[in-house]
Design a protein around this nucleic acid. Sequence first.
DNA 1: CGCGTTTACGTCGTTCGTAACGATA
DNA 2: TATCGTTACGAACGACGTAAACGCG
Lengths: 338, 338
Amino acid sequence: MKLQQLRYVLAVAENGLNITAAAERLHTSQPAVSKQIRQLEDELGLKLFTRRGKSLTGITVEGQEVVERAIVILREVENIQRIAQNLKQESRGVLSIGTTHTQARYVLPRVITAFREVYSDVSLSLHQGTSEQLADMVESGLIDFVIATGGERLFPELLRLPCYRWDRVILVPPDHDLTRLGRAPTLQDLAKHPLVTYVFSEKGESSFKSAFARQGLVPDVVFTARDADVIKTYVRLGMGVGVVAAMAQDVADDGLVALNAAGLFPRVTTWLGFRREAVLRNYMFDFISRFAGHLDPWTVRRALETSSQADVDALFADQALPMRGAGGELVPEPGVPA
Amino acid sequence: MKLQQLRYVLAVAENGLNITAAAERLHTSQPAVSKQIRQLEDELGLKLFTRRGKSLTGITVEGQEVVERAIVILREVENIQRIAQNLKQESRGVLSIGTTHTQARYVLPRVITAFREVYSDVSLSLHQGTSEQLADMVESGLIDFVIATGGERLFPELLRLPCYRWDRVILVPPDHDLTRLGRAPTLQDLAKHPLVTYVFSEKGESSFKSAFARQGLVPDVVFTARDADVIKTYVRLGMGVGVVAAMAQDVADDGLVALNAAGLFPRVTTWLGFRREAVLRNYMFDFISRFAGHLDPWTVRRALETSSQADVDALFADQALPMRGAGGELVPEPGVPA
DNA sequence: CGCGTTTACGTCGTTCGTAACGATA
DNA sequence: TATCGTTACGAACGACGTAAACGCG
């Protein structure tokens, strides 16, 4: 058994069982891949793939077991290489981040810009997706970091570091009824209007709906979208009252007024997660620290030494996490309608 | 990086940094090992070992990191091979068990005899040691199974399957005072006599001492040994009253009388433990099932699907574990002194 | 001088790429 | 016939073992 053979098997499994495509991605010839896989099968004495005629049609159950272990093996091989590169102060490297729209659009740009200036040799890639997709991507090793909110049960194997907290904010057209309340809106106020907000995560409990339910109210959600830009568009069209993350609110949002929603919904924590077994490159520590100031390398290493997520949470329990988003700045003060 | 290089590094690290010894264990030449290690160091660009002149004097910190990951990698490689061998119904294999004296001497012989008759091609090895030593051995992959008692905190990473429970039994010479009580001895009775029992485990809390302490008594332990045979010898010499595991009591123990100690000390559970990541060969499932009838392959696989030891414990919570040892059979009934 | 490591070199096995072949839809 | 996998073969590479050299106690 050789590491190349495992790499080849994995590449084939990850490229739709197409040996030609796998060979291209591996920068080698297709007979090389074909032969190595066959040799591994011979050595192990089992078929990793099912074949019809000459083309691969599926992975056998044992093949799947082998693939899973190959992932672990190659991951650790990469860890060894990262250790070496860290020591050599090698500045080249890769950092791929999986995240949701809100982070990618409103929070990360500043961090990434600054990061790229310092680490020009680090190839940075951003993958946007739903929580479910991110979970798959991080599991398969496609991405190093996940930056997301909620979903504790979706990412059970990740070490999650709390980064900051945020409230929601209410967006309405300038002449909307809610702007004439003379005070910040309540849930009762909101329940009287059609609402436009985020798609509810498939698995996570919807803190949005339950906030209303707790007061015996049923929100009239007329439209949901994955990102705040779409929501804003429909609010401008007068489809309803928008409820978005405070970070997504921009002073330059013309045609919209932001109203404070702090306290109406539970605060949300954005965290950064990665696999516990991962060896982090130095620039990864720096990225984390740039993204969340309190997560300096020393603190992150301490979190890595814990044995469970509960211990990590305890590490940060006594710290007041920073708040993000301008939600508080555009509050219509009592008697001062926007 | 190649798997052989990792194997070589590991062998050198495990053989006192002696390349020659490592080469012999690997059935290869010593220059081969020397060269491969050097090549890996060159490829990674770091020194794995510290050298004085030409001889290795130590492992660098990075070398240690690499060794730890190499262990994981090679373990998974072995798992892949086991999967293949299981499928081929390959009957050859290795099974090494680490255990304590009591199990090795009194419980395992019958199981092992029967097992060897069926699996003559499985090379079986037994390693006796203290809990601490066993923990090291299983961690380094030297042994597949640990069969022991207590020590939950000593084996945190093992999947532990409860096998059976047992009480202690009291051993005295035939003419001893305790045989004339006309009833089973109490802790008060025991506290009046010099006692001979097991060495207390270094890290585990001593359930022996605390049983006395709970009644405000202090046992007069005059001698401790690692195994019951030694204890019996000293009881025969009249050094004191023996307290041993019920399994260790043998009807053929001439010159000794066994008195019931059930209820005096907390019941002890013997468990069988192995690493969660391990792939078990079919004969290993069979061994477990022979050792503890309720641990059939199906049940063990179910335990393997759990995510924590707590879940495993819950699996067996409602089952009455079998008792082992003849302690109950030689009880001096009230009014019937032995 | 013994012990252990490294260097040198010849041999053998293995991997790879190109090119031709085979099978499938 | 286009697509994809396998077979064939020559070239390059790499691992290993023997033998000799080197350093250190």
